[in-house]
Design a protein around this nucleic acid. Structure first.
Lengths: 180, 180
DNA sequence: CCTTTCATGTAACCTGTTACATGATTGG
DNA sequence: CCAATCATGTAACAGGTTACATGAAAGG
């Protein structure tokens, strides 16, 4: 469960409410979660209970009160200990590959449509990734070192989608050269 | 839930038991599932109940009986209908990117270690993908058209890991050029 | 002797998703 | 007037994982 650490990391830059975290997480695609309530609010409560976060409630006029969470020393230690762990390999769920695996059951034109639809889908994702703003930079750049790492993350997503796009286009080319 | 369709697809090539499916699914990395019992056996039962699979029990000497499942006409229709659906974008879980996002909290040598560990991890995955055998080809090649699609799937995995590897190596280069 | 293979199945659990609920305020 | 924003929270469910259980046979 690394959403736990994404939360701790975001709270290093500045204290925030669950609502703020939810917005950042659901709007970025670096954090691949939907940013749903259940996970974030429950995670905050349990991190708070375990002393990794402190919490302060701020009452506002005409608006619901905000619960602001800040990371504690032990929270920081927990985060840093995790950061040093051997990285896990990335996981991919790729239902389109399952579709392709039995695409021989489809007509040529159906396959063409499938490939075109996938190409479009990835193109959209690539454009979204290009305009993706780095959340931490949106507020205050912590250090140039952090900015460097965030750049690398964005590069990773771009390279990922570009590879996927080139792949589907190469299939289209090969099919085009053979028959049509 | 596309494991459902992975099962239907595998059973198009030939009738099989849950045990056989489990082996194929857990040994290939095209199918990203662990191939655990719960999902496969339950899925088989529910597909059978809905008439998408037929089932026959074969008793053996000195071995437990096998339940052989075969795809029915309506199962084939279900599969083909799904194959024609607009493909979903691939999903990635990439905890290493979350680690990198706050890698500025680590020392330079810790970061170097992290990157080296990730590079090694991906290299291993790449080698595994190279030696990965296509399950359907292992038995009988259905058509050259299917063989073509399976090749593309393997290419996708290879390109995926190669991109990831080049990415991490480019970070190592940039860090190396700056400081050391 | 211990592990693996064959073959099916159950139980408990974790992660994550969608949908719902409240209730005031702002904007098109 | 309807939708979105602010802000927290609950409930139900889907998808997937690990671990356990059985019991015989084969292999190192």
């Amino acid at each position: 469960m690394s959403i736990e650490y994404a939360i701790l990391g975001l709270l290093i830059n500045q204290p925030m409410s669950g609502y703020d975290l939810k917005k950042i997480i659901s709007r970025s695609n670096t954090f691949y979660w939907s940013g749903n309530n259940n996970q974030i609010y429950n995670q905050l409560i349990s991190l708070h209970q375990d002393g990794f976060l402190s919490q302060e409630t701020i009452f506002q006029e005409n608006k619901p009160p905000r619960k602001i969470y800040a990371i504690t020393e032990s929270g920081k230690e927990k985060l840093i200990a995790w950061l040093r762990l051997k990285p896990l390999p990335p996981e991919r769920k790729h239902p389109f590959l399952i579709q392709l695996a039995w695409a021989n059951l489809l007509s040529e034109s159906d396959v063409d449509e499938l490939l075109a639809a996938y190409e479009e889908e990835i193109t959209t994702q690539l454009i979204l990734a290009q305009h993706q703003q780095v959340p931490s930079l949106a507020n205050e750049i912590a250090t140039t070192r952090q900015a460097f790492f965030w750049e690398q993350i964005q590069k990773n997503w771009m390279a990922y989608y570009r590879t996927e796009l080139e792949w589907v286009q190469s299939i289209q080319n090969e099919l085009g050269n053979k028959a049509r």
